[in-house]
Amino acid sequence: MRTIDLHTLTGAYALHALDDEDRAAFEHHLRDCPSCAQEVRELAATAVRLGIAAATPPPPALKDEVMRRIAAVRQEPPPTAAPARSAVRRAGAARLPRWALAACLAAAAALGGTTVWQYDRARDARAEASRAEQRTQRIAEVVAAPDARTRTEALGGGARATVVVSQSRDEAVFAASGLAEPPSGKVYQLWFDDGGTMRPAGLMDPARGSGAVLMEGRVGDAAGMGVTVEPAGGSERPTSAPLALVEFPV
Score class of each variant (00 low, 15 high):
T56C: 09
D205N: 15
P146T: 05
R126W: 01
V165F: 03
S168D: 10
A176R: 09
G11T: 00
L245W: 01
L179Y: 08
E230P: 05
D120V: 11
A132P: 02
A53S: 14
V165R: 15
A241Q: 07
C36G: 00
A148H: 08
L30R: 04
G202T: 11
P57K: 03
A82V: 06
E133M: 02
V250E: 14
A45D: 02
E236H: 04
F192I: 02
E153C: 08
E76V: 04
T152S: 08
A54T: 12
L15S: 04
A140Q: 12
I4W: 08
A100K: 12
L105E: 15
A127L: 13
R90A: 14
H16Y: 06
D32Q: 05
R49S: 05
L101W: 12
H16D: 14
F248M: 14
V116P: 00
D193P: 06
G11D: 05
F26Y: 14
F174L: 15
C33Q: 02
L105N: 13
L155A: 15
G157V: 13
G51C: 12
R123G: 01
E236V: 06
G178C: 06
E181N: 07
R149A: 15
V246W: 00
D170V: 00
R123N: 09
A127F: 09
K63F: 10
A222H: 02
R68G: 13
R41Q: 13
R138W: 11
R69E: 15
C36Y: 04
Q38K: 10
A161T: 10
T114C: 08
A71Q: 09
Y119A: 10
P78V: 04
A94D: 08
R23N: 06
R74K: 12
S166H: 07
R2A: 11
E76W: 01
A53Y: 13
A145D: 06
R218V: 03
R131W: 13
A201I: 11
T114A: 14
A24F: 01
S177L: 09
R90F: 09
P182I: 03
A106K: 08
Q118D: 06
P249C: 03
W191P: 02
Q167W: 03
C104F: 15
Y119E: 04
E27F: 04
V246Q: 08
D170K: 01
Q137H: 12
A127M: 07
W117A: 14
I139S: 10
R169I: 03
P183M: 05
L190V: 11
E76L: 12
S130N: 07
A71N: 09
A132I: 02
A103P: 06
T228P: 01
R123S: 11
G202I: 12
L105Y: 07
C36E: 07
P206Q: 05
T56E: 15
S86V: 14
P79S: 06
A159D: 12
Q118Y: 05
K63A: 15
R149S: 14
